[in-house]
Write a protein that binds this DNA or RNA. Structure first.
Length: 116
DNA sequence: AGTGTGACACTAA
DNA sequence: GTTAGTGCCACAC
């Protein structure tokens, strides 16, 4: 299942499971999708989707706790959407990842998830 | 087929 | 705490 299509499908499935008010990082998605180091691809998948369905793409942010859509002009929108879910962004545009980062039940632990 | 680019992550300074 | 450099994989040109 190392095919790009499978990777994309897994990322989508993971994103779809992110609870409201919680977030996941690109690297985390890539790791859980079975492709550690493919964080950029996770972002590429999102870019390919962006508005395809009811997918909460807004809950995917980078490892710094910042939104990475500022360049696309979606930065403010994403922050606002997350803020509406209870995610607090500080003055520097960052949020508390250690508290908001969500892990799926399959990986239910605080450390790295070597599953899949 | 090779080069450049990108919704990233990690380490070092 | 931050910014800069390097590695990563897939896609577009």
């Amino acid at each position: 299942m190392t095919e790009p299509a499978a990777f994309r499908a897994r990322v989508l499935a993971l994103v779809a499971r992110i609870p409201e008010g919680r977030v996941m990082t690109y690297g985390q998605l890539a790791l859980l999708a079975g492709q550690p180091g493919a964080a950029r691809q996770a972002g590429f998948v999102m870019n390919s989707l962006m508005g395809e369905g009811e997918l909460p793409w807004q809950r995917v942010i980078n490892a710094q706790g910042r939104v990475s859509t500022h360049r696309l002009g979606f930065g403010d929108m994403q922050e606002q959407l997350l803020a509406a879910e209870g995610v607090i962004f500080d003055a520097t545009g960052r949020c508390d990842l250690s508290r908001l980062q969500w892990w799926p039940e399959e990986a239910a632990h605080t450390g790295p998830a070597p599953l899949l």
